[in-house]
Structures are given as C-alpha cells and as structure tokens.
Simulated scan of single mutants.
Amino acid sequence: MLLPALAFAVLFCYIPMSGIVMAFQKFMPNKGLYGSPFIGFDNFDYLWNYPDIKRVLFNTLFIAVMKIAAGLFVPITIALLLNELRKEWMKRTFQTLVYLPHFLSWVLLGGIIIDVLSPETGMINQFLGLFGVKPIFFLGNNHWFPYIMVITDVWKEFGFGTIVYLAALTAISPHLYEAAEIDGASRWKQTLYVTLPGMMPIIVLMLTLNIGNVLNAGFDQIFNLYSPPVFESGDIVDTFVFRMGVQNAQFAFATAVGLLKSVVSFILIATSYFLAYRLANYRVF
C-alpha cells in the first residue's frame, strides 16, 4: 500500500534533486545539466549582490512571522470560546463553518477575495463607503497587501488549527475545574489557571514546529493575489524564484535561491524539532 506514495515521492521529490547542480553552473538548456559550464559559487555571489534580495527576504520573514503569530492566537481564542458553548449543536455547526475554507484552494479563494476587495464593486469598499471612506485598492497597495495576506490566511486555516486545541482541551481533567469552582474561581479564572496551563504543552509544540515555516510565507496564496504594483511589499522568496526561473528563464540563479532557502529551512526544521523534544517532549521517531 505504501508503494504508490513511495513512487510518487521518488519521482517528484528525489529525482528532481539532481537539478541542484544548476546552482553551481552557468546553465544552458541546449547543453543540459552535464554539459553546462561549472562556475562554482558565482550564482550565490550574484544572489548576495542582487538589489532586490534583501527586500524579498524581509517580505518573506515579515509575512511568515505575522502568519505564525496570528495562526497561533486566533485558533486558541476560538477554541476557548467554542469550549464555553453549552449547546452541542451550536458548537458543531460553528466548528463546521469555520473548518470549510481549509478545503478550498487558493485559486478559488483568490477569485473570491479579489471580488470582495475590489475598489469599485467589492463588498468591503461598499461598506466603507457608507461612512464616507474613499475606495481602497487593498490588493494594489503596498501598505495593505501584507496584512491582507495574513488576515485571509488566518481566515482560511484557523478552523483547522482550532481542532488541535479543542483536542487538547478534552485532555484536561474535569476534576480540575470542579476543584477550581469549589475554591470560588469564576469562568475567567478557570480559563486562566486551569485551561491555559493544560493547553500549554500543545501550544509550545505548535509554536516550535512552526519555526521551520519561517521562510514559507505561502506561495499559492500570494501568487494568486499579488501583482507588479505590490512586488515591493508582497514579493517573497518562492514567488521571486518562480519569476526568475520560469518567467525570466534564469534557471541557475533561481536554483541557487531555492537551494539556499532549502538549506536554511532544513536547519530551522531540525532546530524546531529539537526544541519540540526539549520543551514539549515531542518526538518524531
């Protein structure tokens, strides 16, 4: 049963790794991987001196860190609120509604978000117009674009994250709440001194595991929503590699950028799993 998945991984993950050699070549498509001249680390030297690379790295870190922070805070908050609902049908209905966007692709959601945020016909701008606010081009404004990416990503994924924290809530012993109630603790005090400490191991685990995603700001989302006017604040490493490699045909340079990102991501993932083991006693193997 594992053979199809193993074949898929070998075909699409391991065999393409032979293309890493392009990062150290002046790649010429007509000469192929083994006929192109070897130039050592020249592509990496060019990368460090490339005028836009610092901006791209900053955008990636800025958007990714905000997504990690918001993606941790919002699901925890929603899980705590859902836990306070006493009617089971209401809890299940709300949980299903917030969980649905997780299954929709960014191609579909991108079209919806573009329509909703349109400066002329978008629902948001029409609502703001009721208060005399001039239309805002959210997806074409360098100030608004990174925050829109964070908000829409959280909206899509917080329902899935909520499930993790709801599962953590079920592991907390009811006797702790009974003891706190006997001691006169209110619902807020119970949340503060019983619920949150009980959830802390999974919170620490999720936070440490997310360290490995610092350089993954969301290619699918940004690629479907960004445009040249917002390259200054929305261009991330993955979209930069796509433009350089696919659109501009700078295959060797794009490979060098992608390889550097992969090495850094590997170090971050290894660090995150080490911290997860030390802080939350989580082990993969």
Rank of each mutant, 00 (worst) to 15 (best):
M1L: 15
L2S: 14
L2C: 13
P4R: 09
A7M: 07
I15S: 03
S18K: 12
V21M: 13
M22C: 02
A23H: 02
Q25N: 06
L33V: 03
S36F: 04
P37R: 06
G40T: 04
Y50R: 15
P51L: 10
K67Q: 12
F73A: 15
I76H: 05
T77I: 14
N83E: 08
M90K: 12
K91M: 15
R92K: 08
V98L: 10
H102M: 09
P119R: 15
T121W: 12
L128V: 06
G129D: 07
F131W: 14
I136N: 03
N141M: 07
N142Q: 10
F145P: 02
Y147G: 02
M149V: 13
V154W: 03
W155E: 03
K156A: 01
A171H: 11
S173A: 13
P174I: 04
H175V: 08
A180R: 08
A180W: 01
I182R: 08
K189C: 03
V194I: 10
M199R: 03
M200E: 12
I202F: 05
I203L: 05
V204R: 09
L207I: 14
I211K: 12
G212D: 13
G212N: 14
A217R: 00
D220T: 04
D220Y: 08
L225H: 02
S227D: 06
P229S: 09
F231R: 12
T239W: 00
G245Y: 10
G245N: 03
Q247A: 13
Q247E: 11
N248H: 14
A249L: 11
Q250Y: 14
T255S: 12
G258K: 00
L259V: 04
L260G: 07
K261S: 13
S262H: 06
F274N: 15
Y277G: 07
Y277F: 08
R278Y: 13
A280V: 01
N281I: 02
Y282L: 09
